[in-house]
Design a protein around this nucleic acid. Structure first.
Lengths: 340, 340
DNA sequence: TTGAAAGCGCTAACAC
DNA sequence: GTGTTAGCGCTTTCAA
């Protein structure tokens, strides 16, 4: 692999001149420039990014830490992050934590040693972890996307939706369209955003003068199958349930499946509503009504925010004040809900 | 950020000793070792991976280039790659080519400069591209996963399934269960594996004494919507079609949707079969019969193969002979097909 | 068993 | 405008 020195020798100049031609950092005589460029072309020289990063203390690489790439929402966020990063000349290292705090911690440790310029995280744990605190303490650039803890608001850079409000609205819609027995399928209570969605559900019920019946709250056990079983059980014990709000589209897919298998008509007998609006939700039978999150856009914003931090830090040595982007959600009405 | 020199100074030894303690490359007096370790712990020192890579000429990073992370099969492959890489101490950089040859080429160029030790590629183009040839020429470690070109067999490292054979079997199954008018939804003919699947379909038909009717071959136009429209059109012009074989599960989802919307019963009136067996296919209505590919395992094998190459090259300076792993597929019968 | 020194490939003062 | 030089943080001969 040819290096800058070789190019310099062949072109009869010094390495710094080659560097200058490449970086455009200062004026180089047109003639010299062309000579160097020619040699570069002929030798197929390409600068060693490692050496450059070592020298500059920056790698132009960011690390995206996600709980699971198999969860349908993350590829969309990832795409937003990646497109944006590429546009700004950054590469992204993708790390899957598999919803495991240990793995998350180990990855951050590993990536932090000047490897990456910043992180975009979907935190695994509900409670704040020391390593995220440490990142903050050390003024290491990072942004939290989709998942965050309440106490971080105003402290950290966050891109999220208003989970409470969005759910409140969605469940209110269900109530206002005549549903009277609304169940909910909630994801792991370890995750703050699921708690928020549950709160929104409860508040909507209460504010409309309805009772919150704990028997109608389905909690995530181990794996998605449990929602399948729970839905069946729910409908057997509470056949008058007329709507099931699901805190994520994939959960709604499972609920839909269970309802189908029980020969319960959707939406005639029970309405089903999801949360996310992943592309597939429109293909379901019936097409799923859901709360849409601008996932791609959230990825874009997270990356933009992070790069802004990185650049700011490089210039001034400090991080800009934290910003919390709260994105708009929207209720998408398809065929899995109806007016009673 | 504390570096090796600082640690050395505090511990009262030389940087080389610290390096030796860390690398375990040669004997260090127990006492010295403990002293150094203590300082490392106290200072929170962590080696700079960049500097290490620059020195060693290896980054312990591989690059995974995929056409689209939003395509349901890739996250699964990715997971296999990542899990395996992590197990061997490698990180993976994920690059999305968005099915664009330009982007693919640019990424390879960018990543190759000693950044990454090897590539796992899902090629975008049908014809061999110069940059892949160049990789091969230069003995740069890489493996092709899922997508490859016929002329590469025996030349390059490949992990794939027998697309022709798998489709032949699946379509034969359809024929043997009484289907007489079998349509096919084929993906972009720019991709060799879709061609293979089409060939398998044609051969199965021919071998069973049936005619290949071009009107029953649906080709991918722009985007998935086109299959929606094409399916509708097909069923209107050829209402006697009794099965549609889809060359990928997501295409089957669209076909299912179109059939539903036309109030055509699946499988009573027409059977639908997919290819991939992504997890979601079991949740469809009706649950999708499909040809399963061991996607996760393919990721695992690709990563294993690549790492083997990297290690071999480091030891001997040459690449091991190429291997082509052909994985087993399996017909999964669910509820979208039946016996006529 | 340990230290000194060279060098991986690059950039950026600092000279001229 | 261009060259010389030092140094980013690490590993690894080579000596001692």
């Amino acid at each position: 692999m040819v290096n800058i020195k070789t190019v310099a020798t062949i072109a009869g100049v010094s390495p710094s001149t080659v560097s200058r031609v490449l970086g455009g950092t200062s004026y180089v005589k047109q003639e010299t420039k062309e000579k160097v460029l020619k040699v570069i072309r002929e030798t197929g020289y390409a600068p060693n990014a490692l050496a450059k990063s070592l020298k500059e203390g920056r790698s132009n690489t960011i690390c995206l830490l996600m709980p699971s790439i198999q969860n349908l929402i993350f590829p969309i966020i990832t795409q937003g992050v990646e497109d944006t990063a590429r546009k700004h000349g950054f590469s992204v290292i993708l790390c899957n934590t598999n919803e495991d705090v240990q793995v998350e911690s180990a990855y951050i440790d590993k990536m932090r040693q000047r490897w990456v310029d910043g992180f975009i995280l979907c935190e695994v744990a509900k409670d704040n972890t020391e390593y995220v605190d440490a990142l903050h303490q050390e003024q290491f650039p990072f942004v939290l996307v989709a998942r965050f803890n309440p106490q971080d608001q105003g402290q950290l850079n966050i891109v999220s939706v208003d989970n409470y409000g969005a759910t409140y609205q969605a469940v209110s819609h269900l109530i206002e369209t005549g549903h009277r027995q609304i169940a909910i399928a909630v994801g792991s209570e370890q995750l703050h955003f699921y708690e928020e969605r549950l709160r929104g559900y409860q508040a909507a019920l209460t504010d409309h003068g309805m009772e919150v019946n704990p028997a109608l709250i389905l909690n995530q056990g181990s794996g998605d199958e449990s929602f399948y079983a729970q839905t069946k059980c729910l409908m057997e014990t509470h056949p008058t349930v007329d709507a099931i709000f699901c805190t994520a589209d994939p959960k709604a897919f499972v609920v839909l499946r269970a309802l189908h298998d029980m020969k319960i008509q959707v939406p005639t007998q029970v309405s089903v509503m999801g949360f996310d609006n992943v592309p597939l939700s429109a293909l379901m039978e019936p097409p799923l009504s859901t709360v849409s999150q601008p996932l791609y856009q959230m990825g874009v914003l997270a990356a933009t925010n992070l790069i802004k931090q990185i650049l700011h830090k490089e210039k001034s040595g400090t991080l800009p004040p934290p910003v919390h982007d709260v994105m708009q959600t929207e209720i998408i009405l398809r065929k899995s809900t109806c007016i009673r």
